[in-house]
């Protein structure tokens, strides 16, 4: 589904990503782990077109996505949920969700898609006409993920969705992700600092260090490797 080959990104002289290759399959979660500054966020930003790539390619369902504008990548069905401040605080909850439906959902079906999101996250329905700035951290995370789903994506790129959430809410979020990616073919690339919970739901894991892929393996094997955990994953 997503095929990344030799992808490099530079910020001036700084090599943020160096020849990264991996694949993400449909109906599965690929987690990208690593310390702060390892290049995880840069990887997602390069995939969605927010930063230009220096070398290498990424393609989605056979179509090259490197070199395209972010809006063009989004229109192909790649939904990037950026870290932290993805909520548009000046809009209401309902407006945030509707905004997701404009590109890939037909006019007559948009209301139904938003209602589906409310079914999944009932707290959002209760606050639908409130400004998104009034939401708690967990609710904001529901809103950005709900909005990404309202895009009817085929691949989710999630940047640290557990950031600032309590362990219980994080566990719920991971369960939701697992459920979403089983079934109708939705794939996810999950960037996480919280390696333990990411490994618990992922189907495949890669570890970045200083912009390079150092390990790519099954999550269970990564979790079992004490050295690796100590060096790169911090648990």
């Amino acid at each position: 589904m997503l095929h990344v080959e030799g992808l490099s990104v530079r910020y001036g002289p700084v090599r943020a990503l160096e020849s990264v290759s991996f694949e993400a399959r449909s109906a599965s979660i690929t987690t990208v782990l690593g310390a702060n500054g390892a290049g995880k966020t840069t990887l997602l930003r390069a995939l969605s077109g927010l930063v230009p790539s220096h070398q290498g390619t990424a393609s989605f369902d056979g179509q090259r996505i490197t070199g395209r504008a972010p809006e063009a990548v989004a229109r192909l069905g790649v939904s990037h949920v950026p870290e932290g401040r993805g909520v548009i605080a000046e809009l209401t909850v309902d407006e945030n969700l509707r905004l997701g439906t404009f590109v890939r959902v037909r006019r007559g079906e948009r209301r139904a898609v938003v209602d589906e999101i409310y079914e999944r996250f009932p707290q959002l329905r209760d606050k639908r006409h409130r400004s998104a700035s009034t939401l708690s951290g967990g609710e904001r995370q529901m809103l950005v993920i709900g909005r990404a789903l309202a895009c009817r994506p085929r691949l989710l790129l999630l940047d640290e969705p557990s950031l600032g959430l309590s362990p219980i809410v994080t566990a719920q979020l991971m369960a939701t992700l697992r459920e979403l990616t089983t079934g109708d073919g939705l794939g996810a690339v999950l960037v996480e600092q919280n390696a333990r919970s990411a490994l618990s739901v992922a189907d495949w894991a890669i570890v970045l260090n200083l912009g390079r892929v150092v390990v790519a393996d099954r999550p269970a094997r990564l979790a079992a490797d004490a050295d690796l955990r100590r060096h790169y994953l911090g648990f």
Binding site: L50, P70, A74, P82, L99
Partner: peptide
């Protein structure tokens, strides 16, 4: 949306 948050809007295909 584009005025308040151009980057997020672009990621939504706007």
């Amino acid at each position: 949306a584009a005025a308040f948050s151009p980057e997020v809007s672009r990621l939504l295909g706007v």
